[in-house]
Amino acid sequence: MVYPQTLTDKERLLKAIQMRRDIVEMVHAAGSGHPGGSLSSVEILVTLYNEYLKHDSANPKWEERDRMVFCKCHITPAIYSILARVGYFDPATLNTFRKLGSELQGHPCRFYPKGLEMSGGSLGQNLSIAHGIALGLKAQGKPNRVYGLSSEGDLQEGNSWEAIMAAAHYRLDNLIVFVDYNKLQIDGHCESVMGVAPLDKKFESFNWHVVMVEDGHDFKQIRDAIDKALTLKDRPTAIIANTIKGKGISFMENQAGWHGKVPNKEEYELAIKELDAQEEAINKQYS
């Protein structure tokens, strides 16, 4: 299928529920994985892959495609879910996640599944990859855009700031980087582990445009931010989206402990029950 397409409000909400189901089910079935940061990125990914990125799930290497580079690559449950749901592979294989012989590696390898641009898992590296792709496309006079998905953890790495410095130096206005700013990392709140605030001022002082998203789970706010970023010239743009780690599952929300924790049977059933209720509410609201 060729994207971007336009979704209705109801479709957006239901796609987010579907992704959250996939995330919870994958992590539960695998017995390992990273639910917290996957759940915080859902609305950003639903928006990008459906409504903004130019791509074709039947033609993954399409020359004219925009490039999506994941900098926070531990969120493979979210990455594989969105790729499957936009048609790159059969969602039935999502339950092989992290198993021996599966294409769905714990952290992504760029060769599979289809639709991935780059391997990753070592934070700090892929902002440089995104920078290189944006630089290469621009040097060849190509109009494709490059999107990145970073996080406060990714921005604790020095390599990230080298890339941020270089992208401004080369005036890469074909590069838009989302920060999924959920403020929690493995060992706790990022401001207690290693403070990154104020992120907006840091990006601005590195000569980037900055667009803030107050609620990174509000589709309209996300769309408005991208629309604005697409008008900005001469510099790369950071879209800093305030998000909630574990969003959508009440007992996971804002809990650092759910960074890499697996729901047990009870927790899994409770999470699915919550998602069922959310889905029912959406269907009722739009009926």
């Binding site: 920078h131 290189g132 792709i133 290469g136």
Partner: peptide, 12 residues
């Protein structure tokens, strides 16, 4: 570090 991975991106 950025130079190496920028090269990686260019190669892509």
């Amino acid at each position: 570090q950025n130079m190496i991975n920028t090269a990686g991106g260019l190669s892509l």
